[in-house]
Amino acid sequence: MKSKTSLILAFETSCDETSVAVIRDGRKVLANEVATQIKSHQRFGGVVPEVASRHHIEQITICLEQALQTAQVDYADLSAVAVTYGPGLVGSLLVGVTAAKTVAWAHHLPLLPVNHIAGHIYAAQFVQPIKFPAMALVVSGGHTELVWMPTENQFEIIGETRDDAVGETYDKVGRTMGLAYPAGPQVDQLAQQGHDTFAFPRAMQDEAGYDFSFSGLKSSFINRVHHAEQVHEQLSQVDLAASFQAAAVDVLVDKTVRALHEYPAQQLILAGGVAANHELRQRLASAVANQVRLVMAPAQFCGDNAAMIGAAGWMLEKHQVRADLDLNANPSLEFERIQLKKH
């Protein structure tokens, strides 16, 4: 049987970004339009309610037209429509879900329901095909998860944060240092010039299992900075950043390496917004060098985007996983959490 070219139109509207992409055969990005709400607010110099309230709805048709134009494809060329149906904000998700259903219905195309986190993981496909079994460390503002994939289309959480996500912790620590949102990349930059001198706690490093916790590190950091302010002590910004980053990265790397011992994988995928962090990339690469091939999602596909949804949609298309036209947004969508082996 001759395999037909897969050409997927993908929608992502789970949070701030409105994005539409066209993906060929799961790996080739023909178009990836992203409209960020934050930028649109800046452009209008603050909030213009009439502009803001319809942001996703207005952007989605613009993104759709641009994506088709950039990819130089017509609806008739498409093989399926993929969409993020969770997790995320229900009102935002619904815009993408409704748009995808409309296109699927109007053009008689299969509808592929994509989990947003699967999308982040499948961004790795833009570097090389995923080989199974695979492990993914998904790190972003909203997520910190170790996801085990024994085979394609099987996602199981073996560890996750119990409180704050690592990207969020970066931002809040940055805010305490007076850096502007989003502070993560700036903390990373400062950290590269400093030294780990403050000995912040490495939460849960010694505990069995693969769960993370970052709220203790956040509190410890904030307490140290506030104490210094009270006694008029000057703290080195670069050493603060380096100490925080060392504590956060230590735990992420440690747990991932340990998880790979118990769940040997062909590939380790680093995905999500924090995957762009320099120290995490370097430390993880050297820690697993002899153990597994590390695949890092390309920097431009680390944030939220529809291209990664198209890549994950391609995998669903292959496995003939389809949604009916009554597909609804699921704000709390999660992968299964597997029972860990005895420790």
Binding site: C15, P87, G88, L89, V90, S140, G141, G142, T161, R162, D163, D164, A165, G167, E168, D171, K172, S215, P331, S332
Partner: peptide
């Protein structure tokens, strides 16, 4: 269910 920070997702729901 475990209650986690909703800062980046803006909303988390527990049913």
């Amino acid at each position: 269910q475990l209650v986690r920070s909703p800062t980046f997702t803006i909303m988390r729901e527990y049913h």
